[in-house]
Every structure is written in structure tokens, then in C-alpha cells.
Amino acid sequence: MALLEIENLSVEFPTQGGIMRAVDGVSLKLEEGEVLGVVGESGSGKSVTMLALMGLVPFPGRVRADKLSFNGRDLLTISDRERRKLTGKDVAMIFQEPTTSLNPCFTIGFQLTETLRLHEGMDRRAARRRAIELLDQVGIPSAESRLSAFPHQLSGGMNQRVMIAMAIACNPKLLIADEPTTALDVTIQAQILDLLINLQKERNMALVMITHDMGVIAETAKRIMVMYAGQIMEERAAEDLFASPQHPYTSALLAALPENSKGSRLSTIPGVVPGLYDRPKGCLFSPRCAYATEHSRSVRPELRPWAGGQIRCHYPLGDSSRTARINADHPLDAEAAS
């Protein structure tokens, strides 16, 4: 049985302009100890997907799914009380902005021991001892003296280490890291990534690493899920995805990596992620896709099994019959199709 099973998850936000579909039909399985990378431009629904799993979608968001189960527990029917026993213990999450994610009014020690006392029922002294161990493990020097520090006294990188210590405090089966390095200095980014990967290996916990940076994920994840406008576009083993991307969007993301840029200019994907008003009828990527056809503009592709993973595209790049089918479907950009 998989550790995490999500089927057809959607999250909607009612707004003044209509209903904003932030997550649209996401299905996903994650095994124990597995590392999954989630990539996609900003606004593609990566964070909201994981917040839905944590039960943290902010009001007035609505979460729907055919299945949402973690470690054999059905999260759709679970009571709030039972859910709180899971969150922070078996599944934990760290966020993009470490400094604002910690409460400015309480010491690091208080915030760290709070989790231990709640979930592990430790007394003050035991929790304190364990907190020092944890700070040590996440590479915070002179851990004991840091217990009485407030978040504003530490650097962003240190605060993210504290967040990580808090997240792993109760040995979670799954850790979700939502762009954990985006807000940090470049030199610190690599350290935090290394720390996360080492902790994952040591503890064999499942890790979901969200990022909008393909480069970050390349060394980390076994499997990669590419999201766009709330949908999964492609989801495959990391090696395969990097060697032969199947979705034109994945391919474009890879081409935008600095090390893959031809010549001195970075290639970027023209256009922006569709919002509330410009959501296309057909494939959500079609307005920006070099291979769009009249068919793909009008018919939304389903998420289907492909090349050892899943893909949501009418014309996967590795499909030998794609050129013929694109031509038959009236390509909008004749040059690209040939």
C-alpha cells in the first residue's frame, strides 16, 4: 500500500471574478521513503496541492478529491482532532519564508519543544534535551544557547534549519518542503538542500520537494511531477524525464535551465500561466505551446499513463506518430510541426 494516495484532487477559491481553480484533477501516489520533486512556474498550484494534503487550505478554499489517503487513513472523512494528531507528527511541512514562518514572540526553544510536548507527550526537560539534539542534527552550532534565541536574532538559513528541526522532531513519514531555499542566499541554498537530502536518507522518510527550479530537483528527486495551471502535465522517473521529456512544457522548462541554454541568452517560455479569466478550453498549455493544433486548443487532454509515468498531452514528444497526428489536427504553427 502506498504511503500517500491522491486521486482527482481539486481546490477552488471563490473570488469576486468567479471560481479560481488552483488545483485541477491532481492524482499522485507516493511510497514510503520516496523522494518526489514537484516543479512548475509560480502560480501553478504546487503549494496549494500540498496545503490541501495538510488540511491547511486557507478559507474560503474548497477541497475535493475522489481519494485522499495517508498511511492508510482516509483524510477526507477524518475528524479534525484525529487529523491534528497526524499533522506535525507523521506528516510535516516547511515553507518558503523561514523567518516569517516562525512566531516572532516565542523563542526557538519554545516553538521546538511545543511540538515534542504535544505529539510525544514529553515533559519540559526531556523535550529540551531532545530539542538540543535536533538543533544539533540540523547543523545549528552551539545548539543549547540558541534555544533562548528569538527568530529575528537568527539568519534566514538558521531559521530554515530550525523549521526543519521542528518538522522532523516527531520522525514524520512524509516531509513536504515547499520551496525551502527560494528565500535564501545562493550559498546557503545548497547547504539546506544537502541537509534535507541527508535527513531523508538517514530517516528514510518520504520527501516532497517543491521548487520552481529544475536544477534544484535534478540531484534530489527520484521522481518528478511537473505542474502547470493546477494540473499535472508530466510525472515520471527523474532520469527519464531529464533524458527525454515527453511534454512540450517539460521540454521548455529544461531548455530554460542556464546550463542548457544555447549561446549566451537564456531561453524562456513566452506567455504566462493562465489565470481566472484566460483559462483555455482545451489544453491549458496550448496558448504557449509550439505544437498546438486546433484539436488541442479545443479538447482538454486527460492525464494518462505514458512512458513509465503519467502525461497530459495529445502529442507526447516520444510518440512516433505525433508529427502525422499534429498535421492531421491542423497545426496552428506550421513550421513547428514539420
Binding site: 491547511l56 491534528r84 494528531k85 499533522t87 511541512m93 512566531n103 516565542f106 511545543e114 504535544l118 505529539h119
Partner: peptide, 22 residues
């Protein structure tokens, strides 16, 4: 609406503790 309240929820703290303490 602050991030640290989301963190407090992610820790599994009770609603009462989140509101009255954090």
C-alpha cells in the same frame, strides 16, 4: 493571516492554543 499561524496549524496545535497563544 501570518505565515507563523499556518506553521502553528501545520504543527497540529489545537485551535484554542493557536488563537489564544500564538
Amino acid at each position: 493571516g501570518e505565515d507563523y499561524i499556518r506553521t502553528a496549524k501545520a504543527k497540529g496545535l489545537s485551535r484554542y492554543r493557536i488563537i489564544v497563544l500564538h
